[in-house]
Amino acid sequence: MSPNLIPKTGSRTALDPQIQTFLTQNSSLQLGGTDFLAERKHHTQVFAFHNHPPILQASIDHVEFTAIRGPHGTIPIRVFYPRSGEEQKQSRDAAALIYFHGGGYTVGSVDEFENGLRILAEESGAQVYAVEYRLAPEWQFPTQLDEYLAVLEWVQGKGGAERGVNPQLVCGGGDSAGGNMTAALALRVKDGKGGRAQPMRAQILLYPEARIPFDTPAASENNSGIYLECNGIFSFADHYLPRGTPPSHRYISPGMQPISSLRDLPAAAVYTNGFDPLRDVGVEYASKLDEAGNQVVWHHFDTLPHGFLQMAPWSEKAMKATKQVGKDLGELAYGK
């Protein structure tokens, strides 16, 4: 979008009825409640691909389970190869998306995001590398960014070369906390602290936690009862931050950084939702990136909540939004 056309806050209309039905049928499903260990189990029971009825399982050409040795130990990686990207793979010109899932740094696994990532792969023609990174609070910042960087270097290097990936077409992406880490890694590489890694082709930010939403209309409007509990975001931040690391740290809260320090970043696609406590910090970050002169694609879904990628099988509007992410990924990666 052109500079200054992205607002500072978002809006909401009426919650998608199919999402409302899903949330009603899964009334105990929440993110950011009082027991993150129970949430880990419950999310796997509801969202894991192997628990989906076959009719809801998105198809893919094939899936590879692999791993690399990272700075903190083995990093499991699940690679989704789309049928739509076979020609690019064979010509060694395939795009790739490294994906760090959401869950407040604390909850979640690749199993829960597989269905949505299959859709992104087929819609874009890009291979998707979903990372089973180490979770907080057992592992804190910067462990996760270290692992993200290790995977980026691997996909841009030997790992991607062996799979037909063009190292110039490697994107990073994630939702919620994963969006935060993607934005942070883009800054880290820009700052010359990315080791051998080159800048990402693009950053795909689904409802990112660009900063803590303590002062936004969305934090009040969507405080509780719509899947993501706003006040629980503070607990997740506490899990992630070591003592002595301020929340304003450049690689903790990209959305708090001045516009002058956000120039010359990879193209960004940012997605925000009306019924999401992170709505306005995501809109704000998209606006800042835009004002800084970066290429920004912004989509706002005013009837959807946080987590639409996982909820796509149960909602036509969430499915449409997920496919839009895949379409944008293909355009940004391949320059279509």
Rank of each mutant, 00 (worst) to 15 (best):
N294V: 08
K336G: 13
G293H: 01
S235D: 13
R134H: 14
G179C: 08
L228S: 04
A94N: 06
I68M: 00
E112S: 10
D238E: 13
N166Y: 04
N294Y: 00
S28G: 08
L152Y: 05
H62E: 06
Y271R: 03
M200S: 11
V63P: 00
A94H: 04
M200C: 07
P142G: 04
G282N: 02
L149G: 03
D146Y: 01
Q30N: 11
L117R: 04
L228D: 04
L37I: 15
A161H: 04
L117Y: 01
P242Q: 12
P199G: 07
Q257L: 13
I77Q: 00
Y227P: 03
L241Q: 08
S261D: 14
D35K: 14
F65Y: 07
Q18D: 09
P246T: 14
E221D: 12
N180S: 11
Y99M: 03
E39M: 07
V283K: 03
R279A: 03
H299W: 02
E229D: 06
R78T: 11
S224N: 12
T34S: 15
P137M: 11
Y148H: 11
S253D: 09
H72I: 09
E316H: 12
V189Q: 01
L185Q: 08
A197D: 02
L278A: 03
P246K: 15
G102W: 04
G335P: 00
A14N: 07
Q156V: 05
K8V: 13
F65E: 14
G232W: 10
N51V: 15
S261E: 15
C230S: 14
I212D: 10
E162K: 10
G194K: 10
Y334M: 01
P217Y: 10
P254D: 05
H299T: 07
A67C: 05
R279C: 12
L152C: 06
R40E: 06
Q198G: 08
A67W: 04
T24V: 09
F214I: 12
E132G: 07
Y251W: 13
Q25Y: 05
Y81H: 13
G330H: 09
G73S: 09
L205E: 03
M256S: 14
A183Y: 12
A333L: 04
Q88V: 05
M1N: 11
G173W: 01
I55D: 11
P305Q: 01
R69Y: 02
L37F: 11
Q203K: 06
V63Q: 05
N51C: 10
T24K: 13
L29Y: 08
Y227G: 01
T182A: 14
L309M: 10
Y227I: 14
K190D: 05
G282L: 00
A333S: 10
R279V: 02
P242F: 14
F47Q: 12
L31N: 11
W154F: 07
N26K: 08
P247R: 15
G159I: 09
W139H: 15
